[in-house]
């Protein structure tokens, strides 16, 4: 009798600047991924799943992404229906553009809408918050009622959906801090979370496992 070997999904964390990438790497390894942290084009294009992290300013993240041809990597993966997961500012840059003060920066334009400053008495939004996931969400399967760790001052506060589009509309999960904002999106091969699943304890681990199960 032979034991079937389960193949570990190969995940790349796109390395385009400084910040804490170690936590994302370890969190994905913990739930069974074979993780490398790199910006190497061929590896990033061909892996089973690409995670796009991001901290700091929208503009500097876009600069970092452009420097490694990140927007094209994302485009080409999606053209081949290969999964991409954006995390925190890595989600924000998937929208049309970001507005920080008087500075407007073009994003990767995968989704319509603008990322700008949250209106709330206390900003940044820092800590563990609840989310409202739509029925049928695969990412939040089993953890829809859990809290996740957020740390951000900017967010997508609307998600314009074009009813006429010949595709399934994206599945949008909302959260609230002073006002509603987009906490996660599931859109075919492209998924993203505004919160940090790699910092969200066991609930975050389940979410990452849910993502890996789709690879």
């Amino acid at each position: 009798m032979t034991t079937p070997t389960t193949r570990r999904p190969r995940v790349v964390i796109l390395d385009y600047g400084s910040g804490n990438l170690r936590s994302a790497q370890r969190a994905l390894e913990r739930v069974g991924a074979d993780v490398s942290v790199t910006a190497e084009l061929a590896v990033a294009l061909n892996c089973d799943g690409l995670a796009v992290p991001g901290v700091g300013a929208f503009a500097s993240c876009m600069r970092g992404l452009h420097a490694i041809d990140g927007p094209r990597i994302i485009d080409r993966r999606l053209a081949g229906a290969r999964p991409v997961l954006g995390i925190c500012v890595g989600m924000q840059v998937l929208f049309d553009r970001g507005v920080e003060g008087t500075q407007e920066t073009d994003g990767c334009r995968q989704w319509p809408g603008v990322v700008d400053r949250l209106t709330a008495p206390v900003v940044p939004h820092m800590g563990w918050n609840t989310v409202a996931a739509p029925p049928g969400s695969r990412l939040f399967d089993g953890v829809a009622s859990e809290r996740f760790y957020f740390v951000h001052s900017f967010a997508a506060r609307s998600f314009p959906v074009h009813d006429a589009a010949p595709f399934l509309p994206p599945m949008v999960t909302w959260a609230e801090h002073g006002e509603p904002f987009v906490a996660a999106v599931e859109n075919g091969a492209l998924s993203a979370t505004q919160f940090h699943p790699e910092k969200s304890g066991d609930a975050g681990a389940v979410l990452l496992e849910n993502w890996l199960s789709q690879l």
Partner: peptide, 24 residues
Amino acid sequence: FIPLTVGGGIRSVRDVDRLLRAGA
């Protein structure tokens, strides 16, 4: 896999970079 804050003796951007890269 929860947030980690590190304080004490931080004097420069370089100190911060090293701590973030280490996993803070």
